[in-house]
Structure formats: C-alpha cells, structure tokens
Design a protein around this nucleic acid. Sequence first.
DNA 1: CCCACATAGTCAACCACGATTGACTATTGG
DNA 2: CCAATAGTCAATCGTGGTTGACTATGTGGG
Lengths: 154, 154
Amino acid sequence: MKTSDFEDRKQASLAHQLIKAGRLLNEHGLAAARIAFKLPELKQTHLDLFPHIDFAGTSISDIAKRKGVSKQAVSKLVQEMIKMKLVYLEDDPNDSRTKRVFFYTRGPYAISKGFSALEVLDKSLKQQLGEHGYRLLLKKVDDIHAILSVLEKD
Amino acid sequence: MKTSDFEDRKQASLAHQLIKAGRLLNEHGLAAARIAFKLPELKQTHLDLFPHIDFAGTSISDIAKRKGVSKQAVSKLVQEMIKMKLVYLEDDPNDSRTKRVFFYTRGPYAISKGFSALEVLDKSLKQQLGEHGYRLLLKKVDDIHAILSVLEKD
DNA sequence: CCCACATAGTCAACCACGATTGACTATTGG
DNA sequence: CCAATAGTCAATCGTGGTTGACTATGTGGG
C-alpha cells in the first residue's frame, strides 16, 4: 500500500464519509438547538433522551429501559430538562407510583422549537440539494438503515 | 402539530437520518476494528487519533494541535496504542526533542488491517447498493460535506 | 384479607474515563 | 544566554454513569 493512497482510501469509503457527515450534522444540530431553545446548558445527553420520550408521555423507568441505562441516571437528566422547561411531569392516573414525562406541545418551549434545530439544517440541505436531490438522498439513507438493520443480526 | 406526526417528521429529516446512520456505522466500525485488530481494549478515543496521524509520521504535539486537546492527553493515548502495537515511535532526526508517531505499514498490525474494519462495512454496503448505487451515494455525501463546510463559516 | 414481593422514583456515595493544569527535564534556536 | 518547544508524570476535575438504601405504591397467592 503506497502511503499516498491513505487519504484517497478514506475519501473513497462511504462508511467513513457517512460517519463524518453524521458527526458534523450532529454538532451543528446541537449548536442550533442551544440557540433555538436559548439554552446554552443543553447537552447531548439531554438530546439523547428525546427519541425515547413519546407524545403520549413516558415513564422514567421506560425511558431508562429503552435507553439501556439506570433509572437513576434518567431521573437526573429529566430533572434538568424540567428546569429547562423542555418537559413536564404528570402523575399516571392508573399508577400513582409512576410519573409520566411529557414534552410541552404549546408555548415557547414546545417541542416544535426543538425540531427547528434540525429543521434549519434540513432547510439548508434542501436548498443546496434541491427538493428532488434531498428526497433521493433521504431514500438512499433509508436503504443504509435497512442494510444496517440486517447487519445487526450477525 | 398532531402528535402522530412526530415520528413521521423524524423519519423525513435527512439530517436526523444521516446522524443516525453515522452513529450506527461508527458502532459497527468500532466493533469490527476490535475484531480485526484482536484488540478488545481498543476504544473510540484511540480511533479518534487515527485521522491526525499521517504516514509521514506525526509528532505528539502536532496531533494534539490538530485534535484540539492537550499534548498530555495525546501522549497517554499514544502510549496505549504503542502497547497495542498499532503505532511505533521514532526520533525525529532534525529535532531530538520530538518523537514521531508512525503506523505500522507491514506485519500483522499494519494499518491496512485497521481499514479492514470499515472495509467490511463498505463491502456490505457495496453489495447491497450495487457498485453504481454506492458511488452515487458517495458522491451525494460528498455534496453534504461541501454544504457543511460552507455552513461552518457562519 | 393479608403479606410477601416487585416496581417507580429519589437521594447519596462512588466510579471510570477523558480531559485539564502544573511542574519538571531536555533540546532548540535567535 | 534564555525564551520557546517537546514530551512525561502526577494531581485534579467534570461528566455521565453505577450501586445501594430508602419510601411509596401496586399485585398476586395462600
């Protein structure tokens, strides 16, 4: 292997380029979210909880199970997110032990604001790639996910 | 916003899907690298040094500067990578203070083995997408990088 | 109807890790 | 000569997580 091929090979690796793209987008997204929410203290760990909280409300234990960490860890993060007014708690009517975590769906802290973080990025991408190019690429990335989900089962 | 749109909107966000794809590929890549190198102790932090070490050899200070961390942090990681036989040190002939970090280019620990980690992934992707689809997607992701590099300057 | 056991959540202590800062030696170079 | 630089060791820090102990509530079998 000629050493000069090194960089070339990295450039030619789709996996490598996708990893890099994902990282960069994530950085941009986090930065955008901090601005959109006006919450400089918002951290990746908080964002990581988002996908595990659904609009029907989710208990802390369930979030912990889904994320694969202890409920104590989640509890702390949720408390921080409450302070940031990203989510609120509501008692479960069927089980007074459990508290359900909800996103705000209205008001200045509504989740739609959260999405605007990535939406800003998506808008840029759409602008640059064109609507058709955007959709095409989205479709392709879906294929990647399909491939990866098969790979999981090895 | 109907709560049922929540998941749909995430699915429709190219940024979100790319972030997810990047993460998954990275996980697979790290796992594959651990197997390819037969080094269970190989960590993300070590891998993160790779792009900053070039085949001409790189000093610890330079790696630190490129990565944006202290040279002490890099020093420790390099020592671990030496133990793992991923890299070796060589005195700089022009400056006896500096040690250059090199990848092994031959033998069982040669860097090509390292690439096989991502290469396995690329092979799968190529297989599933077809040579043409692979190249097309690679091109598209390059476009993303171009767009992001412009966005950097905001 | 209990009582035993499981589950939800919280507080506190602790831990691992990746980083930092500070102090030091050795070498370079104007 | 002396300020700047390369590298290392050691102490410390912040963070994101763990385990353990506790309260409170739910649940199922004798």
